[in-house]
Design a protein around this nucleic acid. Structure first.
Length: 243
DNA sequence: AACATCTACAACCGCTATAAC
DNA sequence: TGTTATAGCGGTTGTAGATGT
């Protein structure tokens, strides 16, 4: 988060636009972010030439425009994951989305509310108190548990949530990442990471981690320190879990 | 064909957490 | 240490298109 010095609150008479984004507005936002990166959502709209609130720009970017978002139908596998994770985590849409590369919390929330809620029920959160209570095999430990070093905040240049995402699904069209997604001073570091094959990036555990598929190594950025783990992602998480 | 209702999802709103001052 | 600005989250609403009557 970049905080700017306090300024007198000048009344702004420019009318803020609401509602559906036009293609032109999308292009303006994309072009601006490609050129300057994300430095401050609140102050960005004006130089970007947008009559929108920063909040609206952020939402549009995060939910629709940012690279590596999958704009297709939710697959059966993804649907099953959503159901399982919702039972495990409750309505923690951001946490659920972190485990579904390319899907946004908003998309998952909408999908749940419009399609799954009625079918599955109100999604009673799974209470894990004893092993016998576990009805859904938790493929991952919940992220809330190994608390809680301060999470390294990403600076304006790190642009972390949009770094390339690979999925270990060989058939997935999502296996491509775009180096043009990488913006900012950390580019060279990230380019090195991205040169490694078969990983996913997620951002929810002690900062940011990259996870591999089931078999490939795991690279983790925690507390601004690169940690290498030679086992599978599940092994890595279980190691953390047991610590 | 016209209107009503339903569905899906984009976008908004209010709130909280956190970093910066 | 308290205050403020900003980012992010989850619930809710608005609306366009599909479907039913």
């Amino acid at each position: 988060m970049v905080r700017h010095p306090l300024k007198p609150n000048k009344s702004n008479n420019t009318r803020v636009k609401k509602g559906t984004w036009s293609a032109e507005e999308d292009q303006k936002l994309i072009a601006y972010i490609k050129r300057y990166g994300i430095w401050n959502w609140i102050h960005m709209p004006k130089p970007a030439g947008l009559a929108r609130t920063g909040k609206s720009c952020r939402l549009r970017w995060m939910n629709y425009l940012r690279p590596n978002i999958r704009h297709g139908n939710i697959t059966k596998g993804e649907e099953d994951m959503i159901i399982d994770l919702q039972r495990l985590l409750g309505n923690k849409w951001a946490a659920i989305a972190a485990r579904l590369p390319g899907r946004t919390d908003n998309e998952i929330k909408n999908y749940w509310n419009t399609r799954l809620k009625k079918r599955v029920g109100n999604g009673n959160k799974l209470q894990i108190s004893t092993a016998g209570d576990i009805k859904v095999k938790p493929s991952l430990p919940t992220i809330d548990t190994p608390k809680k070093e301060p999470i390294p905040r990403m600076n304006a240049n790190s642009f972390c949530t949009s770094y390339g995402v690979h999925y270990d699904d060989k058939t997935s069209e999502n296996r491509q990442y775009s180096s043009s997604d990488v913006i900012g001073e950390e580019e060279s570091l990230w380019e090195q990471f991205l040169a490694l094959k078969d990983f996913q990036i997620a951002e929810n555990f002690g900062g940011m981690y990259m996870q591999s598929g089931a078999k490939a190594p795991v690279f983790v950025v925690m507390q601004q320190e690169l940690v290498y783990h030679s086992g599978s992602y599940e092994d890595f998480m279980m190691d953390l879990w047991e610590k």
